[in-house]
């Protein structure tokens, strides 16, 4: 078995600054060896620990999809010491990547179902991975209708703008509803908070599955809307963020009750979360 503390070496191929505030960047990394690329098998919703030597390590959801071979992408907001150091990186720099970690989105349960993907702010990363996976031609027929609601404070904050607007908006096999909190000049899509837009555009359903990622306040107000639309707790999934170190269920800091977010999560259904203490 591989030493679980040993990272893969990855090279920074490209860095996209996502927001006008420049506090949000997406890093495109390539594996240094083909063998590493072959060994890193993941599903959407899993995460990895990115490390910079001398600074440390922190967990990030994988924003790329498995079909995007040989590379991984991560969107990182600058908040602490490691994210600060990541933002200083330049093309060609080497980082460590340990993973894939966690359970990922429940792909098998999603098969054959209509899906509602709801994201807010920079928590859209692993949802992007999931949608990218679904719209892959060889996978698309496994899933039903896909509706996406993605909200941000203002147009500047939207992740993966080019892809979303130039590709996803023009596809007829998914419906995407971009929204911003307040009207803005030149904005031609939805306006309003995610819960309200969800209520407006998503049809009630007795068997669709919702996948929700975003700031706690967004999730808090979206859940009642989903309930109203007929989504039961076992058909609503979310991905949790906790402080993590080892990522392999040993270091003991990310537990909620007897579940480790790093190993048993980060994806949980609301039905599962309702059975756990609200300590997150």
């Amino acid at each position: 078995m591989k030493n679980p503390y040993q990272p893969y070496e990855m090279k920074v191929e490209e860095i996209i600054t996502e927001s006008p505030e420049k506090d949000l960047k997406t890093f495109y990394l390539s594996f240094v060896t083909d063998q590493d690329a072959d060994n890193f098998n993941y599903i959407p919703g899993q995460f990895a620990e990115i490390s910079i030597l001398g600074i440390g390590e922190a967990p990030f959801g994988i924003a790329s999809a498995p079909c995007e071979k040989g590379m991984l992408s991560f969107s990182v907001k600058k908040v602490g010491s490691l994210t600060g150091a990541l933002h200083e990186l330049e093309k060609g720099d080497i980082v460590g990547v340990r993973g894939p970690l966690g359970n990922g989105w429940p792909i098998n349960q999603l098969k054959g179902k209509d899906l509602v993907v709801i994201g807010g702010g920079f928590a859209f990363t692993t949802l992007r991975s999931l949608v990218k996976y679904i719209i892959e031609p060889k996978n698309r027929q496994d899933f039903g209708n896909v509706d996406i609601v993605y909200g941000n404070r203002n147009p500047g904050q939207i992740l993966y703008k080019k892809e979303l607007i130039e590709d996803w908006m023009n596809r007829d096999d998914i419906n995407i509803y971009l929204t911003i909190d307040k009207p803005s000049e030149g904005w031609k899509y939805q306006v309003g908070f995610v819960p309200q837009v969800t209520e407006k555009v998503i049809k009630p359903s007795q068997n669709a599955i919702a996948l929700v990622c975003g700031p706690p306040v967004m999730i808090k107000f979206t859940l009642p809307v989903l309930k109203k639309l007929g989504f039961t707790s076992d058909r609503i999934y979310t991905s949790l963020e906790m402080k993590m170190k080892c990522g392999i269920g040993m270091c003991g800091r990310c537990n909620i009750g007897s579940k480790y977010v790093c190993k048993d999560g980060p994806v949980f259904s609301m039905a599962e979360l309702e059975k756990l203490p609200s300590e997150y």
Binding site: Y5, I52, L53, G54, E57, C251, G252, R253
Partner: peptide, 11 residues
């Protein structure tokens, strides 16, 4: 058995 993982400045 809780632990932390940190990088020191000495490699």
């Amino acid at each position: 058995h809780c632990f932390d993982i940190t990088d020191d400045k000495r490699g």
